[in-house]
Each structure stands twice: as C-alpha cells, then as structure tokens.
Amino acid sequence: MMHKNKKITVFSHLLAWLVLFSMPYVLSYGQEQDLNRVIAHFWIPLVFYAGIFYFNYFILIDRFLFVKKTWQFIIINGIIIAFFLLLKEQLEETFFQELARKSSKNAKRTGPPLKMFFYVQTLSYMAPLLFSIAIKTTKRWVKTEAERKEAANYKLQSELQHLHYQLQPHFFFNSLNNIYSLVDSLPEQAKTSIHSLSKLMRYMLYETNMELVPLSKEIDFMKKYIDLMKLRISDKTEVTYSFPSEDTGIKIAPLLFISLIENAFKHGVSASKESLINIVMNCEEKNILFIIENDNFPKKTDDKSGSGIGLKNLEKRLQLLYSNKHNFETTVKDDCFLVTLEIETT
C-alpha cells in the first residue's frame, strides 16, 4: 500500500509540472510562439521554482522551520531566491541577448520601475516556497493526527482488555462463592453447578476475545448463568426472564449484561422473605433495551460476597465502547431496584 501511495505521489508531481510547463502553449494556442521567449520567461523560472520547492520540501523545512530555526530558514531562502534572480538575469544576457535587448527597450518605454520589477520577481519566487511549507505542514499534521488516533485507539484497546480481564476473575470468584454455599447442604447441585460453571468459563475464555459477538451467544450465556444461579436460591425467590427467541443479527460487545444479572442475584434474594427477579430484553432493529427489576435487600458493609467492581466495570466499558450510544440508569423505589440499559449498536 505504501509503495502504491508513493507511485501516486510521484505521478501527481510529474503531472503538475507537466501542466505548468505546457501552460505557455495552451494559453497561446493558435498564435505564433517564440521558443526563446518561452524558455527564458517560463521554463527557466519553472526549473528554479521546482528547485526552491523541493529543496525546501525535502531538506530545509525539516532541518530549520520545524525545529524552530526560523531566522536561519528565512536567510537561507533569501540567499537562494537572490541567487536564482541573478542567475536568471545572467542566463538571459548570455544566451538570450536579443530577447534581453527587446525587454530593455520595452522597459525604458512603458515598463515598470526596476524596483517594482525586482519586487514582483521576488514574490514569484516566494510562491513555491510558501506552497512547499503549506504541503509539508499539512502532511505533518495528517501524520501527527494519525499517530494520535493510533495511540488513542491503542490506549482504548488496552483499557478495554484490562476491564475484560478484570471481569473474568470477578465473575469466576462470585460464582464459586455461590457454589460453595451448596457443597454441604446440596452436594449434587454443587456438582451440577461446577459443570455449568465450566461451560460458562469456556465461553468467557475462548469466545469473548473478539470486539463483537452475536447477541444470540450472549443470550445463551445469560440463560445458562441464570439457570446456574437458580440452583442455589429457595422457592421463595421467583425468577422470570424474557429474551428474543429469534436471531436478531445484532452484534454486541461481549459480557455487558452479566454484571447486571449478577447484581440482581446478589441484592435481590432474601433467605427469609419472598423476592422477585424479572429480566427482560427487547430488540428493535439495531437497538437493545435491557431491563432488570428485583427486590432490594442491601448487603451489609461487612458482607464480602462480592468485590463490588461489576457495575463500575460496566459503566467504564459502556463509556469506552458506546460513548454517545447508550443510556444506563439505576433507580430504587418502594424497595425495588430497577436497572435500564439501552444500547444503540449501529
């Protein structure tokens, strides 16, 4: 790709100079053209313009202007322009004497003062200098911007990876903590839970390393986790859930919803009171609406059944992945905890 871009750049430069060298013939099409006049007044200055342009583009701008040696840059270019002006005059007097005599006679009759002529010539030689500065500066800005975006993207990916790795042990230890409570009272359910957990961890380890996964796989993962959690709760807790039954074709960042379901089972279940956990997901086109409603039984401050990083982790990931394309709200009303998460996946 880089080799192809270089070829395109070289071709565009050659085409631009070819057009400039052809301009005298294009503008005087159908008229008699003096070749000596074209060479002296057009082609020689263009060669000098090209020299100023490329000398600045490849050498002077990088070595002086971009490293804040502005005065040296101005002085060197002043010397170069003065040299080319004198060289042009010398070439005209040496090789184009007849043309020089005609120009001298015309200048005496109707031409502008010598100072004005020198001023205009100087300005014409500054044009390729300014043009080279503009192109070089633009190219440098584009490169800097690309590097900045690459660095920002690398930082984003690193942070997301960190959050992803942070979530895995959090989920694993919370699940083990739940299974531990079954070992003595319900050993057979504990065995079943361990087997189910192994399937869930296999998904987390091997299928969630991609940026996006099919929503259908996430739904299957959540259903298995809900079934796993239902093994350890009593009949006093009613768990209902509703997910899209058909494949929506939506792809989503992995493991966005599991922290909310974990949180519902952690704070929405009581050993002595009746409780309800209701989980609903609706999809409309490419938008996802995820709602969890559960009774609220706040844990005591000395309860170590969870590290408390799940929801914080989720908020950070949502901000990084769906900065302006999500709405996340949590409310507590009448001892009921309600979570609403809307995500626009387009």
Rank of each mutant, 00 (worst) to 15 (best):
K143Q: 13
K304S: 11
K7V: 07
D302P: 07
E344M: 05
T340W: 04
L123N: 10
Q90R: 14
Q33P: 03
A16W: 10
K333Q: 07
Q319Y: 08
P169K: 05
E150Y: 13
I219A: 01
L87F: 09
L176A: 04
P45I: 03
W43G: 01
M281Q: 02
F290G: 00
D227V: 11
L129K: 00
D34Q: 08
D303P: 07
H326C: 01
L212I: 10
S216L: 04
H170Y: 05
L289S: 09
M222T: 02
N178L: 07
F55R: 02
V213L: 04
M126Q: 07
F11D: 10
G310N: 02
D62C: 13
P169E: 09
K69R: 09
D235L: 13
Q161D: 13
P214I: 02
F337G: 00
T301Q: 15
A264M: 08
R140K: 14
V19Y: 11
S181D: 10
E262H: 04
L338N: 04
T208C: 05
T237R: 08
V183W: 12
E147Y: 12
Y54I: 06
D235Q: 15
L311N: 03
Y25G: 05
S103A: 13
S22Q: 06
Y29I: 10
I233K: 14
D303Y: 06
Q97V: 08
A146Y: 08
K316N: 06
W43C: 01
L87G: 11
A134K: 08
Q157T: 07
L314D: 00
I261R: 00
Q31P: 04
E207S: 04
L160N: 01
I59V: 15
E147A: 12
F337T: 03
E147T: 12
S175F: 01
K273A: 10
F265A: 02
W43K: 02
Y203A: 01
F58S: 09
N287F: 02
N294M: 08
L311P: 01
V183T: 08
I135N: 03
K217E: 08
M204L: 08
